[in-house]
Write a protein that binds this DNA or RNA. Sequence first.
DNA 1: CACTTATTCTGAATAATTCATAATAAGGCG
DNA 2: CGCCTTATTATGAATTATTCAGAATAAGTG
Lengths: 170, 170
Amino acid sequence: MTEAARHFDALEAQWSSALHSLGRRVTRQRLAVLAAVERSPHATADDAAAAVRAELPHITVQSVYVVLADLTDAGLLRRIETPHSPARYETRVNDNHHHAVCTGCGRIEDVDCAVGHAPCLTPSWAPDSRRMTIQIAEVMYQGLCDDCRETPANPTDQVPDSPQKEQNER
Amino acid sequence: MTEAARHFDALEAQWSSALHSLGRRVTRQRLAVLAAVERSPHATADDAAAAVRAELPHITVQSVYVVLADLTDAGLLRRIETPHSPARYETRVNDNHHHAVCTGCGRIEDVDCAVGHAPCLTPSWAPDSRRMTIQIAEVMYQGLCDDCRETPANPTDQVPDSPQKEQNER
DNA sequence: CACTTATTCTGAATAATTCATAATAAGGCG
DNA sequence: CGCCTTATTATGAATTATTCAGAATAAGTG
């Protein structure tokens, strides 16, 4: 465990200096939230709050929201919006990766950029659209993971997307 | 106007038969919602409700929500989730196009698929991820449109994304 | 035209997130 | 090292987006 602990100490040092050089104060709640999201990537605000409470039992969800929002626009966290689910956060920033979500169980996986590096930022515009200077390209893949393909309709699973609805039964 | 009216009559006929062949009933509210979204693409549920009320003054937002959800999983509408904004809908379905949102004013533009057709569905997986069978690839570009680049900080504009927050002023 | 049932309406509930204000503590300074 | 300023957090409530349960309505079928 010493190994992992050392790793987190190093990360904490990095985060601290990053915060410092951004002119932001280094607080226990910020470090705790960063550690929580590092430990469980794609965590929601609720997840993060629950994890942080191991260290700071009195923290509220609202504070976690504030911290998450602040760290996100400080560039230390990245916010992901998956369909029909609360926002999620991860510490992997600045590496141009994308996400795949299983429509069966809601599982989220990281995906490397499909087209290398730059092409992601050069869209081909639709005929009737005005141009923009693109800064980010978020790609969200949706599909079925192996587990869900084998067990098609399992109502006990967490289903974040539109559930069942077997139309056309006539 | 006869031209446009004829166009909408044709669309309405298409929608009706599509609904019919899906085993769904053809109702005035469904047609009105489809027409509203056709007229203003990327409309939110509220937008749609407001537009529909021109024709059906008594419709409620809840009903519009139900209709939008139903039409979406019937495949007649596509739901778009832009960051920090309610869900939006459009009638352009099945043509594999993407979207660009201006972080300044929130404007949304359609973007043709950047990498042709199939490549969008073949991600290169991150080393530690499990595979999925990809069905959809949603691409969301973010950037600044020409207007917003010229007038950097205009607080009167609608800013759906993280607003101002001029950090590091010391 | 009547009947079945999908669809809509009504009113309320929930989930996610934000806001205003007061309390606290980080970091700079004397 | 302790004080002071002000960023940050806590507290409590509000808002926004969306969904739900049950009653009323109307589409399509025979």
